[in-house]
């Protein structure tokens, strides 16, 4: 099924794609629905001592231990406190060829939209805040810009982690 979705999402056949929109620090990001397993209310994480800051904690999702990834570090986005809209998005990703459940924190999960991937625009070279490799492009939706993230790179554990943003931004 994932494979099918993945195939469906290939640029060749891409015409429209379902995106799950979520916001981080006021910015709207999008991720393809085919990679999403489910959306949950926040679960109290368990810190792992001496773990990589990229995956510092794990959460219990219906009995399965899932690493909790804080993508804001990689995206150099300021970490905001949890509120009533905070959600955990559980993803199903093939990492290293192995389908893996990964949890990530979102300030809010907005909706599911259908967008035309052909209308994707690259992010401008200048003034871009986010590392280019993590972003597939920018889509428009209702006058807003939606940053479409590339889950393959974003959740690659071998990617160098950006310096700790918390220390610099807060």
């Amino acid at each position: 099924m994932n494979g099918g979705a993945r195939i469906a999402g290939t640029p060749a056949s891409r015409s429209s794609e379902m995106l799950l929109l979520f916001s981080l620090s006021g910015e709207t990001f999008g991720i393809t629905v085919s990679n999403v397993s489910e959306v949950l209310d926040p679960i109290p994480p368990t810190e792992i001592p001496n773990a990589d800051p990229f995956a510092a904690a794990v959460v219990n999702v219906r009995g399965a231990i899932v690493p909790l990834i804080d993508i804001r570090r990689r995206l150099r986005i300021r970490v905001t406190t949890e509120d009533g809209d905070t959600r955990i998005v559980v993803l199903d990703l093939p990492i290293g060829g192995v389908p893996t459940k990964i949890a990530m924190i979102a300030d809010a999960v907005t909706k599911v939209i259908e967008t035309d991937l052909g209308a994707l625009e690259p992010i401008p070279e200048l003034g871009a805040r986010w590392p280019k490799k993590f972003v597939e492009g920018v889509a428009r939706h209702d006058g807003d810009l939606v940053v479409l993230l590339d889950p393959q790179t974003l959740f690659d554990p071998d990617e160098p982690t950006a310096p700790d943003m918390q220390e610099t931004t807060t």
Partner: peptide
């Protein structure tokens, strides 16, 4: 209401993942 909203979202996600078949459900 929030839970319902979340459930609806998940349902939308599921519907989206179902593709063409999940359109109505979406």
């Amino acid at each position: 209401a929030r839970q319902t909203d979340l459930l609806a979202l998940n349902a939308a996600v599921e519907a989206a993942r179902a593709g063409q078949h999940g359109k109505g459900f979406a």
